[in-house]
Design a protein around this nucleic acid. Structure first.
Length: 561
RNA sequence: GCGCCUGUAGCUCAGUCGGAUAGAGCAACUGCCUUCUAAGCAGUAGGUCGCAGGUUCGAUUCCUGCCAGGCGCGCCA
């Protein structure tokens, strides 16, 4: 919320009134730093409401309604209402204070929006946070599947939302490019190339054969290598190809990563030993049964974790530890891990690593858990993917429903809820499909504005008369537009981009209602009036906010549909 | 057994610093286009917010217990 927004003026006026009342002895208690304004659900309760009188009742030892009366009296006597753009203040119910704004004042948000443009909604609530946002992190041994896709959409959107709240965000993809799985991958590729049986616990999707073909085409000599060096040759070539594919698929999906972080790099330049020393110096490392352990039980983990196995090789946990330390040493003061539900057992471990490193896990680490995604088509759950051999891939989903519908649907729900995607519904261009509903509102506004231009109607800031927008629909729409910055800040704070989606759905609905009841353009031979211009400005502002919101989701705002 | 998540309308789900009469879409029924995109709008109907306690002016929201469902508990990655 910008300092000069309508809301903040109102909040400030009430705060001033409270301070005055406290000084003059009308109220005797600690005055809060901020006044929280709600938007009442019921229109009869005004444009804003605050429950401050109820909250203070106990501390002040007064009836809530008495406090409300004091606030209102003080507002009146000190002429605080007019400068704040308030036309009416009322007490309601047990002590709520309901506030109605002057039309001109309320309408000024349109000016704010048109002036700020793409920047409207951005704030500084997370300024100073340097966030490492890690998501997807699929193994480079196969395609991006549906579970990853949820994160590809939500993680990307969260990155945008956090940035909009003023944080400095780096999106990171962790590549698990060492360990058994990689070797199995190499063995599977080699087996496919040679036409021999693949390892039982290896990879069996059709894409393995495709990759193997591509490799042998380029490097036919690989097939002549012995088992070990052949495995390595295929592994490395397959790794590169598969990683490039993942990158390409994600970029096409609109999800960009700033850093692709290789697990192998943790073992270069002595970095792992450096991190081990660091953990040792904090006293949480010990040796037992020939293995090197991190005593994570010091910090609430259920059992200690092995970093170096008794055979001298590194356990996966070694990488986890080093990776965390790398993040911290690269200057991030908040590491967000976006994990699948099947990995939620990691949370305790990761936090224990932070604690062992001397950090505060509650402050420096956050884990977001994404529940499972199911996909149904024709009433049947889709389980098999031709390509991956197991689960539906990102590409298959996009082929079915398109990028916008896929992203929007995945982002629209909180991630801690398991979700079901209905392909048939997402293919429909009706309003059961929220992405079209929102996009349609945007396209509709663009059409109106095109027509306005053709009719020679002047719109834009110079022709905007906020005091003319007094219709109930106009006031509701304007009120909702003013909410947007708070929604973005709240979404960032809660790490919940779905709030932005839900908000623009509301906004689209509100615009449609306005459109239905308030004619924007002159009818027939009527002469354009200032009201036409004002409504065109309001429409323009709405389109801007829808577009800004969709942008935070990584979804297009089409001008025509 | 322990840990995490979920339980809101017939269906899919919003509602999270505790607020006024619990919301939306779909499905059912009824209206609104000879002028802005009907991919839209208005209305009717639909609820013991899993169950039982507790905290307080007030609980779908916070705490405890229970019931039901999903997932996880390797010197795998």
């Amino acid at each position: 919320m910008s300092a000069d927004s309508v809301q903040s003026k109102v909040a400030l006026a009430i705060l001033n009134a409270l301070e005055i009342a406290e000084k003059t002895g009308l109220i005797n208690c600690q005055i809060p730093e901020q006044i929280i304004l709600d938007r009442p659900k019921n229109r009869d309760h005004g444009d804003y409401a605050t429950s401050i009188a109820l909250t203070l009742a106990k501390a002040a030892n007064l009836q809530p309604r008495v406090i409300a009366e004091v606030i209102i009296k003080t507002l009146n006597e000190n002429n605080l209402l007019v400068p704040a753009g308030i036309s009416k203040v009322e007490i309601a119910g047990p002590g709520f204070i309901n506030i109605t704004l002057e039309s001109a004042s309320q309408g000024s948000v349109v000016i704010e929006i048109l002036t700020a443009g793409k920047k409207y909604g951005q704030g500084q609530s997370l300024a100073g946070k340097k966030i490492n946002l890690e998501f997807v992190s699929a193994n480079p041994t196969g395609p991006i599947h549906l579970g990853h896709t949820r994160w590809a959409a939500v993680g990307d959107s969260l990155g945008r939302v956090l940035s909009a709240a003023g944080a400095q965000v780096s999106r990171e993809f962790y590549i698990n490019d060492r360990g058994n799985q990689m070797d199995l991958f190499g063995q599977s590729l080699r087996a496919a190339a040679l036409g021999i049986d693949r390892p039982e616990n290896g990879y069996h999707g059709e894409y393995i054969a495709d990759l193997a073909n591509a490799i042998t085409k380029k490097n036919p000599e690989f097939t002549k290598l012995d088992e070990e060096s052949g495995m390595v040759a295929f592994r490395e070539a397959g790794y590169k190809l598969q990683l490039d594919l993942q990158r390409e698929v994600l970029e096409n999906f609109g999800t960009h990563f700033d850093t692709w972080f290789s697990e192998r790099s943790l073992y270069e330049n002595n970095f792992f030993n450096h991190t081990l020393d660091k953990l040792k110096s904090n006293g949480h490392v010990y040796e037992e049964e020939g293995a090197v352990w991190l005593r994570t039980t010091d910090f609430g983990d259920d059992k200690d974790r092995v970093m170096i196995k008794s055979d001298g090789s590194f356990a996966y946990f070694a990488s986890d530890s080093a990776y965390y330390i790398s993040k911290r040493e690269r200057g991030f003061n908040l590491c967000i891990y976006m994990l699948g539900a099947d990995h939620h057992g990691y949370v305790g471990r990761i936090k224990a690593i932070a604690a062992c490193a001397g950090d505060d896990p509650e402050k420096d680490i956050e884990a977001l858990i994404g529940q499972m995604v199911k996909i149904i088509e024709g009433g049947q759950e889709l389980k098999l993917s031709k390509r991956a051999g197991t689960i539906i891939t990102l590409e298959e989903l996009v082929e079915k429903v398109g990028i916008d519908a896929a992203r929007y649907t995945l982002i629209r729900y909180p991630t801690d809820t398991p979700m079901v995607m209905d392909v048939d519904l997402l293919k429909k261009n009706t309003n059961d499909n929220p992405v079209y509903y929102v996009q349609y509102a945007h396209a509709r506004i663009c059409a109106v504005l095109r027509n306005a231009k053709d009719l020679g109607i002047d719109y834009g800031l110079k022709f905007y008369s906020p005091e003319l927008l007094v219709h109930e629909r106009e006031r509701e729409l304007i009120g909702l537009l003013a909410e947007y910055p708070r929604i973005v800040a709240a979404a960032a704070f809660a790490r919940q981009p779905h709030r932005v989606a839900r908000y623009i759905e509301d906004l689209a609905a509100q615009y449609h209602r306005f459109y239905n009841d308030c004619r924007v353009l002159p009818l027939g031979e009527e002469k354009p009036t200032k009201l036409n211009s004002a409504r065109a400005c309001l429409s323009m502002a709405t389109a801007q906010v829808i577009s800004n919101g969709l942008d935070l989701l990584g979804v297009n705002a089409p001008e025509r549909m």
